[in-house]
């Protein structure tokens, strides 16, 4: 797979990758430069130093409150993805192969129906939810689940197909394991990379979500950032830069994990088993 047909010459390849990297690093560099500007002119670390006082300062309450809400929402959405989405995706793959195609289509819908259009429908639902569950931010996780679904599904499904989940679970069952044991001892360990990248994408999407929360007038990380940017643009840019860098490092770590798994995969699924179960 590695030697693909007619790649560009090394010089051309380096030029393309260098130019595109520079273009993409430019906004990040500009953000860093912006956060180093002193309010009085010149450069300094005063805005970075201000990061330590974030907690105490009343001026930044919108941001800290929004950040807190978004962290709670991330945890709740993560729960939804891992406790409802993942088991269902695995269950359909193992027991309802005929529904697989339907699930494929279903999970594309949240991309096909733009979030801004869904918000129009969320508004009346959240008016009702507001009366029964209160107008707290935490109920937003129910809407976020839909936004996250396509990405979580693809991450888990790709891993599921890669690990021969059907064969492995049948093997475990024929050795006497019940479904709970199959899930805990076979499927979850085998799918840890897919589950991890689904979790990471979930957190990334929830922390970056703006459309739904702003139009339903809930305070989240992004609405807080926008609000803070009007009084302290330096801090808003600084926090954005930091959260972007954190996401990049986390994702790079997960994709690094993937390559170790790739080397182990063949040893885990012997070919003979496939043959004996096919007959």
């Amino acid at each position: 797979m590695s030697q693909v047909s007619t790649p560009p010459s090394p010089a051309l390849r380096r030029t393309i990758l260098l130019v595109i990297s520079v273009l993409f690093l430019l906004p990040l560099a500009a953000m860093a430069e912006f956060t180093l500007r002193s309010t009085t002119g010149g450069y300094g670390f005063e805005h970075w130093a201000g990061l330590g006082e974030l907690q105490d300062s009343r001026q930044y309450r919108a941001l800290t409150r929004g950040l807190g809400n978004s962290l709670v929402l991330s945890a709740l959405s993560l729960g939804l993805v891992l406790c409802v989405f993942a088991p269902t995706i695995i269950w359909v793959h193992l027991r309802f192969a005929r529904l697989q195609r339907m699930l494929d289509l279903l999970t594309v819908l949240p991309i096909a129906i733009p979030a801004i259009a869904l918000v129009v429908g969320f508004a009346p639902i959240y008016r009702i939810l507001g009366r029964t569950l209160g107008s707290g931010e935490w109920t937003l996780f129910l809407a976020y689940g839909v936004l996250v679904l396509p990405f979580a599904y693809r991450a888990i499904a790709a891993d599921l197909h890669g690990m021969d989940a059907r064969v492995l679970s049948e093997a475990a069952r024929s050795l006497g394991a019940g479904w709970p044991a199959v899930f805990i001892k076979v499927l979850i360990p085998g799918l840890r990379r897919g589950l991890l990248s689904a979790s990471l994408l979930t957190v990334a999407i929830v922390m970056g979500e703006f459309t739904v929360s702003s139009l339903l007038s809930r305070d989240t990380f992004q609405t807080g950032l926008l609000q803070i940017s009007q009084t302290d643009p330096y801090l808003a840019v600084l926090v954005s830069l930091l959260s972007l860098l954190i996401m990049f490092v986390l994702l790079a770590l997960v994709s690094g994990m993937g390559s170790t798994r790739g080397r182990m995969a063949p040893a885990r699924t012997p070919k003979q088993k496939k043959v004996s179960h096919a007959t």
């Binding site: 990758l17 990334a204 970056g208 940017s229 954005s240 959260s243 994702l251």
Partner: peptide, 24 residues
């Protein structure tokens, strides 16, 4: 590997923070 990670982060990078990046 770093190109892959960068692409998957940046493809999700929209909204308020992206606007800040370009204002900066």
């Amino acid at each position: 590997r770093s190109m892959d990670a960068a692409a998957s982060v940046l493809a999700q990078f929209g909204g308020v923070m992206l606007a800040f990046a370009f204002i900066a």
